[in-house]
Simulated scan of single mutants.
Amino acid sequence: MAAWRVLGKRRLPPLAARAWRLAPERGAECGEAAPGRASRFCPPRKSGHDWIGPPDKLSNLRPVHFHVPEDESPAEQKLRELRQETQDWNQRFWASQNLAFRKEKEEFIHSRLKAKGLGLRTESGQKATLNAEEMADFYKEFLSKNFQKHMYYNRDWYRRNFAITYLMGRVALERAWDRLRPKPKTRS
């Protein structure tokens, strides 16, 4: 099983032993997965980095738990929330799409085997399969049927990523400005 890893400036070894345990210092807030979230895991409060987890079983996407700094500016908060919202949106889309794909694939295989007069299992008890050419028909049909859906997904994905990139630039400029701005002198 893949472990959660910290994203940041330094690399840490995999946390396989603690991969799916809830952080006790987080308390009740991590007890249940949020709606649309892939995992109940919460990184320790003391962590100052985003955490990335193992692929979700339905969507095959790797969920990210975003670090919330104590001194988060409004722009940083907006960026983090947009990133989280985009991740959740992406998770829902691909979980739904993958479920539909698997269901339609099984139905296609079953109908083709039935048309050939074959069962779902071979004489030796193994699962019956179709050849690559027959499966290519299914893939082509599935992609054609879902073309519009994927086109809208790609359009929205680009729109969201351009917004995220814009906010990241804005946050970077704010941080640079804060470092370069002269600090007010304090009198003792």
Rank of each mutant, 00 (worst) to 15 (best):
V6W: 04
L7G: 01
G8T: 04
K9G: 00
R10T: 09
R11Y: 01
P13C: 04
P14I: 12
L15I: 00
A16T: 05
A16H: 04
A17V: 06
W20T: 13
A23F: 00
R26Q: 12
G27Y: 07
G27R: 01
G31M: 06
G31T: 08
E32K: 14
A34P: 03
P35H: 03
P35W: 09
G36K: 06
R37E: 14
R37P: 00
R37Q: 12
A38E: 09
A38T: 06
S39Q: 03
S39D: 05
R40T: 14
P44W: 04
R45T: 10
K46A: 13
S47V: 10
H49R: 06
D50Q: 02
W51D: 02
G53S: 05
P54L: 06
P54T: 05
P55Q: 04
P55T: 07
P55H: 02
L58G: 08
S59C: 04
L61H: 02
P63R: 09
V64S: 00
H65K: 08
E72H: 03
S73A: 13
P74I: 11
P74A: 14
Q77V: 00
Q77R: 15
R80N: 04
R80T: 12
R80F: 07
Q84C: 07
E85M: 03
Q87T: 13
W89S: 00
Q91R: 06
Q91A: 02
R92S: 14
F93V: 02
F93D: 01
W94A: 02
S96H: 06
Q97I: 00
Q97R: 12
Q97F: 15
L99F: 04
A100K: 11
F101N: 11
F101L: 13
K105M: 08
E107C: 01
F108K: 08
L113S: 05
K114T: 10
A115T: 04
L118H: 09
G119F: 05
L120M: 12
T122D: 06
E123T: 07
G125R: 05
K127G: 02
K127I: 10
N131T: 12
N131L: 07
M135W: 13
M135N: 12
M135G: 05
A136W: 09
A136I: 08
F138N: 08
Y139C: 10
E141W: 10
E141H: 08
F142G: 12
L143M: 15
S144K: 12
K145M: 11
N146V: 02
F147N: 05
Q148Y: 04
K149P: 07
K149A: 13
H150R: 07
M151W: 11
M151Q: 15
Y153F: 15
D156S: 11
D156M: 15
D156Y: 09
A163D: 12
I164M: 07
T165A: 15
L167E: 13
V171P: 08
V171Y: 02
A172K: 14
L173D: 15
R175L: 14
A176I: 15
A176F: 13
W177E: 15
R179M: 13
L180A: 15
R181V: 14
P182M: 03
P182H: 07
K183M: 12
P184Y: 11
P184A: 12
K185C: 09
K185V: 14
S188L: 09
S188K: 14
S188M: 06
